[in-house]
Design a protein around this nucleic acid. Structure first.
Lengths: 242, 242
DNA sequence: CAGGTGTAGCTAACAGTGTTAGCCGATTCT
DNA sequence: AGAATCGGCTAACACTGTTAGCTACACCTG
């Protein structure tokens, strides 16, 4: 239980208006629990999801598996905490890419940041997007905040969702090595970036404006506008801790 | 083992030139093995991957779990056979969509067919694209054949791969309910279709031609050209049956 | 200082998973 | 008729997440 040892630090209180720079803080864990999920991350990243076992996890900390339940309600909680970490880090990388767009512009930069993170943390990324994880409660708003840059980069909700699907599909297929070995994936990412860049431009052109895009009609530099809509993703995970 | 009870029917012999209409035949299974994978499919589609258990599978056929090993080398073989089925059916749906393009044209039609199949067989689709399945040997050439329509519809390998990643990402995110409930996914699919339609057009326009596109420069109607390249996907699965 | 209380470890055990070994009856082939 | 294969069975193993119950230690209180 241990509801909240640390108070959430007085961030932007509830889920009303998403500030585009501050990620929602996950609820605090006890020091020992933090050690556990840290060991879990080490295990997961080094040896894959198959190695993330309660007994392995205990061994990593020099204790027996059942003792872990004195600190966490179950394996789900470990995975959930790791997904929270992944979402926060992805969101941070994406927001940084959108706020400081490189030479290729916001869309290509966002996609590059997405790919870079996923390839650097393949097992963590796979866990975070694994469908067997019960959807519902990571830290509320985290996943939305993490996906926000896709909207900031495109200015259109449909194009943003489509571009997010492209990015996720590319990454998952690349991680699973489902592209032929001789593929020039760099060019495929560029092809996607080009497609969504023009789609974004024509979406901004045709429709008068879509909320946020009305305030910053360019390729979205400068201070980020406030958003009011839940955009890309719904909250994932949760479920019976039992 | 039972190498090949049925001869492959004298299709286009090896993996040299992919004919765009005839899918590679999976190697034949014994009648009882066929019953087993059929029961497995029933179980998987009705109750999800969690229900696909050797004991449940045996119960479905009125026998004990260990008896299954008299007909198949293990659970991997069941999953593998189901993935083969899924790939063949997806490929069939896609080839049909490409050969008889609807009012929306080849790209939109291909995407619509992809989405339709996945939503109609969510658990089967998830299994077929599950990363925990050892990659390497489904029926050789099947996955390539199944992804071929993306190339036929776009005429450009990079755009084809990007469009395939988009389709897979959309489907997986939709199946896992990772889009907000109020999303207009129909419009998101259309946004993607538009993006890749214009990308395909500009790819055909800029470069002189990419092999197949040289023979049929239009939106790819009429008789399909022969392909020489391994395109979208690499062969998946295989692994130690042990 | 004595005593209660909560923390954090332990072992034993349970239900479930895929899988192997070995037995045994029936069918079929020589 | 005898032999061999096929297709079922039970028992068991190693592994998974998880629960119950015990115990030693720290700490706070009267």
């Amino acid at each position: 239980m241990t509801q909240s040892v640390l108070s959430p630090g007085a961030g932007p209180s509830s889920s009303a208006g998403l500030s585009s720079s501050a990620p929602p803080r996950p609820r605090a864990l006890s020091p020992r629990a933090t050690e556990i999920i840290s060991a879990g991350r080490r295990l997961l990243e080094a040896e894959g999801a198959g190695a993330l076992t309660m007994r392995r996890l205990g061994a990593e900390l020099g204790i027996q598996a059942p003792s872990l339940y004195k600190h966490l309600p179950g394996k789900h909680a470990v995975e959930l905490a790791l997904v929270d970490e992944a979402l926060a880090e992805i969101g941070q990388a994406l927001h940084q890419a959108v706020c400081h767009p490189g030479p290729a512009g916001g869309i290509a930069g966002t996609l590059a940041a997405y790919r870079e993170y996923a390839l650097a943390h393949p097992n963590l990324y796979r866990l975070a997007t694994s469908s067997r994880l019960p959807r519902g409660s990571t830290t509320p708003g985290l996943e939305e905040w993490s996906g926000e840059p896709f909207f900031l980069a495109t200015g259109d909700p449909q194009v943003a969702q489509a571009m997010f699907a492209f990015a996720h599909g590319m990454v998952i297929l690349e991680l699973d090595q489902r592209f032929p070995g001789n593929s020039d994936l760099q060019r495929t990412w560029e092809a996607g970036a080009d497609a969504f860049t023009s789609a974004s431009a024509s979406a901004r052109g045709s429709r008068p404006a879509t909320r946020a895009a009305a305030h910053s009609p360019g390729p979205a530099p400068g201070p980020m506008p406030e958003l009011e809509t839940p955009l890309i993703l719904e909250t994932p995970l949760i479920l019976e801790t039992r």
